[in-house]
Nucleic acid binder design. Structure first.
Length: 793
DNA sequence: GAACAGATGGTTTTT
DNA sequence: CCATCTGTTC
């Protein structure tokens, strides 16, 4: 095989990708010891991970099917696989001609290598695949359930009963973990509060017996533990699993040696985004290493750990070396990547200063400290920009005008001083809105309407409106609920009219008023759908005959049963209705909505008595119709069904993407706009959680309360819950500020950068001790800070 | 520093 | 809708 140095030279010549010294070290370090790579943003994390995997092939002679690369998201998994194939194929061609690989045996070996057999994916997808492959004889492979069907089961299999028996205790206990600090009001809300607790039983490997017996709130804890036990038993009986139980089952079966045929064949395991690993996943990785002696490489950045709510524990990364030793006896080596190839020096200086600005945050970062991120790119002369306006409306108007200037107006001029200016414009060939992204905490276009008032627009909507006035579209598939998209309202309204027709005398239909568990919000939505459908029917859309179709369905009754099949799947009605709504077949966004609706129908089979079919004989005709309303339409109306954006593979280049900071992790863009405060006009307690916390988040409180029942508890609570709440916000904006390549524009309300502002935001450099890192008091007090690390436009 | 009028804003993230 | 925040007035 190749020597490590020859492999580096091969990569250099074939991929035209000269690696810096640290990156080379990450690839050449031998496979005998585990490797921890601590890598800041834009330093080539994924590149190095894939090249190290390829090194295992070319230097260590491992076959692709013995190499496992896991990532945290499906998107990242796709990226890793693409690079593995894109680089691996030309490297094999070049290696076949390499003087070090001319023996007939090696030539033959290399020719037979099948790169496609490399195991890549999220840990969950790999667990799922292996459990399916190695299933116990005579059993069916487990089906993954998620989202509301999983919560539905949790509720029905034990929680509802527990709630009836211990309402007072559960209300008391759970109110600590709701956002409002009040007891959950509906069953759905209750499931959403209990879900993270029971998921932690599994993710954190909680000693549930000790939890169950502990005070305070012992009765509530016992009720939850019992409910979870019934839930697990019910899932087991139905051969179903949720994500947490999938990983747990994988670990258990692996530990019993039942997966050895696959696991013991693995020779290398490489883990991306290790800072977001949870204790259960850590146990899985360590057990794999113990059983297979595979070469383990992990890469991560403590500053970019964003998934605490999922049990992610950054301490598993920062203390990786000692934890690995105590679990496996292995000694690992550490490499640092700090040369940033993404951002201009101005932007790197900005996010470095941000991370270092609050000394309280330093204690949360990896120790010993990793080197500051050092930019490789040259300066473009463009500073970090800030746009602050008195109101969200003014901000949206000016931001839209600025972006139009950059991409459609030949560039925007930015004054640096009375005599000097710099120009920011789209790339000369093909630069367009697709090069920019608008990042914010939430992409929702409207605030929740309370009472009967009009929903109040938020920044993403205001920006959409401003840009659309100039025929520029935004891409924000999550900005509005599926239930509020007009074509979806029409389609679901038509379905509702088919199965439960309304009339002047019964505007809500015959069955709908008696459907169990409909919230007022859901009821209102169903009625809106009916109205949208009725208006649509009244217009007699082509090819015509819609009224006849709906009426035929609605008047269908037991007496005319002979004309109808005994069992009619709802999905078929939906596909018939699409005859009148052809956009659902042709337009990509419509197709994504249709997929979400189809998914809701398919999922209903997992818990609904009639499984999304309409039966014909009494009393099942009415019951099956009611069940469609309750189990398919209600979750959509309550906003529990989400669109799957991954289905949209190509976002049109002429649209401005709007995404949450979480979604932007791992991505980069030439121009990034970060909204830090457009929604915060006052120091309202309900917004502090997203800008300057005054109390610990529910997630960190849960960590505190479970600390004594889990192995990682002590490491977590070494910092106070409030400090961890601040740390999470710091990391969020650190990720946002490290996305841009060329230009970073921070936007918000003017109050955010007023000295002595009461509307403090962590994002604008306010330290948790109440002082402000962006302000230099020696320059005197003015209305606005005069020492900002950015240039206001 | 109390009392009042008017403004403000109400949860995000993934397998 | 309504608790909470901000600014003004005495």
């Amino acid at each position: 095989m190749l020597s490590p140095d020859s492999f580096i030279r091969l990569v250099d010549s074939v991929l035209k990708r000269p690696l810096n010294q640290e990156q080379q070290n990450c690839v050449t370090t031998g496979s005998a010891t585990p490797l921890l790579i601590i890598a800041g943003p834009g330093t080539g994390k994924t590149t190095v991970l894939v090249l190290r995997a390829l090194r295992h092939l070319f230097v260590d002679g491992m076959l692709p099917e013995t190499i496992v690369i896991t990532t945290f998201t499906k998107k990242a998994a796709q990226e890793v696989r693409t690079r593995w194939l894109d680089w691996g194929l030309p490297l094999i061609d070049a290696a076949l001609a390499h003087p070090e690989l001319q023996s007939p045996g090696e030539q033959e070996w290399l020719r037979r290598v099948d790169l496609n057999r490399c195991v890549t994916g999220t840990l969950d997808s790999i667990c799922d695949a292996l459990l399916g492959e190695f299933r116990i004889a005579g059993t069916v492979p487990p089906v993954l359930i998620e989202g509301y069907p999983a919560n539905q089961r949790l509720m029905r299999e034990g929680l509802a009963e527990a709630y009836r028996q211990h309402k007072a205790q559960l209300d008391e206990y759970l109110s600590a973990y709701t956002f409002e600090g009040e007891a959950p009001r509906t069953q759905g809300e209750m499931a959403r509060v209990v879900r993270p607790i029971v998921d932690r039983f599994t993710h954190d490997r909680i000693d549930v017996g000790a939890y169950r017996a502990s005070s305070p709130d012992q009765a509530a804890k016992e009720a939850i533990a019992n409910a979870h036990e019934s839930y697990c038993a019910a899932l087991g009986a139905a051969s179903q699993m949720d994500f947490a139980l999938l990983e747990k089952a994988f670990l258990e079966r692996m530990t019993r040696g039942e997966l050895d045929e696959a696991v013991r064949s693995w020779r290398a395991v490489l883990v991306d985004e290790y800072q977001d690993t949870n204790p259960l996943q850590e146990s899985i990785y360590f057990e794999i290493v113990r059983r297979s002696s595979a070469a383990l490489s992990v890469v991560g950045d403590d500053d970019q750990s964003l998934y605490r709510f999922r049990g992610a524990t950054v301490e598993l990364f920062t203390k990786f070396v000692s934890r690995l030793t105590s679990a496996t006896g292995l000694t690992s080596s550490t490499e640092y990547l700090y040369q940033n190839y993404r951002s201009t020096p101005e932007i790197a200086a900005f996010f470095n200063a941000f991370a270092q600005g609050d000394s309280n945050f330093s204690a949360a970062r990896i120790h010993p400290a990793k080197p500051a991120i050092s930019p490789v790119r040259g300066s473009t002369g463009l500073p970090v920009l800030g746009m602050f306006r008195p109101s969200a409306e003014a901000l949206a108007a000016d931001l839209a005008a600025f972006l139009r200037g950059v991409f459609r107006g030949g560039g925007a001029s930015i004054a640096l001083s009375p005599s000097a200016s710099v120009r920011l414009s789209g790339a000369p060939s093909g630069g367009d809105f697709g090069d920019a992204v608008f990042l914010s905490h939430s992409v929702n276009e409207f605030k929740n309407p309370w009472g009967a008032g009009q929903p109040e627009p938020r920044m993403p909507y205001l920006l959409r409106r401003e840009l659309e006035q100039h025929s520029i579209r935004v891409f924000n598939p999550r900005g509005q609920a599926l239930a509020d998209q007009e074509p979806v309202r029409i389609l679901l309204g038509l379905l509702l009219e088919c199965i439960d027709r309304s009339s002047m005398s019964i505007p809500e239909g015959r069955l709908t008023p008696d459907v169990m568990g409909l919230t007022n919000v859901a009821r209102g939505r169903l009625q809106e759908w009916r109205n949208a459908a009725d208006r649509f029917i009244a217009n007699n859309p082509p090819p015509g005959g819609l009224l006849g179709f709906v009426d035929a369905w609605s008047t269908r009754s037991s007496q005319s049963a002979a004309a109808w099949p005994d069992d009619w799947p709802v999905l078929e009605i939906i596909f018939k209705l699409i005859t009148w709504l052809p956009a659902f077949q042709s337009d990509p966004e419509h197709q994504v909505w249709l997929e979400a609706i189809s998914r809701a129908v398919a999922q209903s089979r997992l818990f609904s008595p009639y499984g999304g079919s309409i039966l014909n004989d009494s009393p099942h005709d009415d019951r099956s119709r009611s069940s469609v309303i309750r189990d398919i339409l209600r979750p959509i109306a309550e906003g529990l069904v989400e669109v799957d954006e991954e289905l949209i593979t190509q976002v049109p280049r002429d649209r401005l993407s709007i995404m949450t900071i979480h979604q932007s992790k791992g991505l980069e863009f030439p121009l990034v706009v970060v909204d830090i405060s457009s929604g915060y006009k006052s120091n309202h307690r309900k917004t502090t959680a997203f800008r300057f916390p005054d109390s610990a988040s529910s997630v960190t409180r849960l960590e505190d309360d479970l600390a004594s029942f889990t192995d990682v508890g002590a490491a977590r609570i070494a910092r106070s819950a409030l400090d961890r709440t601040f740390d999470d916000l710091m990391r969020l904006f650190y990720v946002a500020y490290s996305r841009p390549q060329t230009a970073l524009l921070v936007v918000g309300l003017e109050k955010t950068i007023a000295t002595a502002s009461t509307v403090k935001t962590v994002a604008s450099g306010w330290r948790r001790d109440g002082t402000w890192s962006w302000h230099n008091p020696s320059k005197g007090k003015t209305t606005l800070a005069n020492e900002l690390p950015l240039v206001r436009i």
